[in-house]
Design a protein around this nucleic acid. Structure first.
Length: 187
DNA sequence: TAGGCCATCTGGTCCT
DNA sequence: AGGACCAGATGGCCTA
């Protein structure tokens, strides 16, 4: 894995509402995406690509349509700005998440996928710790320990968020501790 | 230079 | 109807 300690970049907004994706590079626009197709998203993808290709072919109309066109461009620019803000909020949330996940090599910034994966396993390891502690303290009683453990088992049986492939709580801790090293060591 | 990661643009779809 | 959300496309930056 590579290091990603760079200053935040801001791409210069092109604001070229004329040059759409279909127009920029036809060969890449036609590539499609294998994994997405495999996931059954073919129709949506195909429709989106068709629409982009169509948009790419569109040319400015006669001079009479200028007002409507400017309106459309204005709406698109506003939409772009909203999308930027939305993505910034999403990135802020990622940053907040990074700051609460303990990991090796804190000087290196976690990528998004690393952040999500590490967070998932961190939660699992915390869950297993809680389960271990609470069930050990209240064996066989009607306290919170057994209920927690019952809930955990139900989640496991339902293939829920705790992960049906890892029936042993200790496995989460092991996976997490292994991962925080493998993410950053040797990179 | 290739590959990974990211920001941005864009059009379709969903939701309120 | 308008905004939010989503996913594909594109191009820039960085590292090995």
């Amino acid at each position: 894995m590579k290091t990603k300690n760079r200053p935040p970049r801001r791409r210069v907004p092109s604001q070229d509402t004329e040059a759409t994706a279909g127009e920029r590079s036809p060969d890449r626009a036609q590539q499609g995406s294998g994994p997405e197709l495999a996931k059954g998203l073919r129709s949506r993808t195909a429709r989106a690509q068709g629409a982009r290709a169509e948009a790419g072919r569109r040319r400015p109309g006669p001079s009479g349509a200028g007002g409507r066109r400017e309106n459309s461009i204005q709406r698109r620019l506003e939409s772009n700005e909203r999308e930027r803000q939305r993505m910034h909020k999403l990135n802020n949330a990622f940053q907040a998440l990074r700051e609460v996940i303990p990991h090796v090599r804190a000087d290196k910034k976690l990528s998004k996928i690393e952040t999500l994966t590490l967070a998932k396993n961190y939660i699992k390891s915390l869950t297993s710790t809680i389960l271990t502690m609470s069930s050990g303290r209240l064996p066989g009683l009607d306290g919170p320990g057994p209920k927690l453990y019952q809930h955990y088992q139900q989640q496991q049986a339902a293939g829920g968020t705790l992960g049906a492939t890892e029936p042993q709580p200790e496995g989460h801790l092991h996976r997490y501790s292994t991962q925080i090293h493998s993410f950053r060591e040797g990179s």
